[in-house]
Design a binder for these strands. Structure first.
Lengths: 97, 97
DNA sequence: AGAACATATAGACAAATGTCAATATATCTA
DNA sequence: TAGATATATTGACATTTGTCTATATGTTCT
């Protein structure tokens, strides 16, 4: 994982509200959650949610899937695993399990 | 790991220069690196390094050890492991190894 | 005690960032 | 085609944050 993506992910995870949104998407059991549903889980304006979702997509932490007027988001676990692996590598921390 | 510490760590890792400093401390083989040595590895003013070191200490990512006029820093791998474990728990990502 | 060195703090500043209201764009349905 | 709904974009604003210079505090050594 190159520096640019590494930093992008770190930044994406650093804002509490954005992390909440990410967590909502990551733990969703329905195979995709749309923007509107995300909005209902957090107390910020729709424009703000849209902005955070964009950041998460750009960090490749989530994947967007358009279906008509809706946009569904699914977690990209591979990116998280890569990020964690990169942290461990750069900091010479042993894997936790 | 409670919310407050979790966010503190995430923020601490999010700035590129601060991460560089953390990485320098984490990969140090000499059992402690002092502020002055950290300053030599990065291209910012001493005051800025001092500020970043403080943030790392407050996030409990590194531990400071005063010896006379010097201050030695060592990585706190436990915190990183806790942070990674917390990420995996909150995001329901399986351990990487 | 006084000079030299290591680190911390204060205060100022610019850039980045999270937020919102308003509006635009796109899609669906009656 | 019109109206309703879902999401994106624009532009503005306040806050946060990384950075610096200057200075303070604390330590060592002559």
């Amino acid at each position: 994982m190159d520096d640019k993506r590494f930093q992008k992910v770190a930044k994406a995870l650093a804002d509490p509200r954005r992390f909440d949104i990410f967590q909502t998407i990551a733990t969703d059991q329905a195979g995709g959650i749309c923007s509107g549903s995300v909005c209902e889980t957090v107390e910020v304006a729709q424009a703000t949610v849209s902005h955070h979702l964009k950041e998460l997509v750009e960090a490749d932490l989530v994947t967007a899937n358009c279906k008509g007027q809706f946009k569904y988001f699914t977690p990209n676990h591979a990116t998280m695993n890569e990020y964690i692996a990169e942290l461990q590598k750069r900091l010479q921390v042993k894997a936790t399990v």
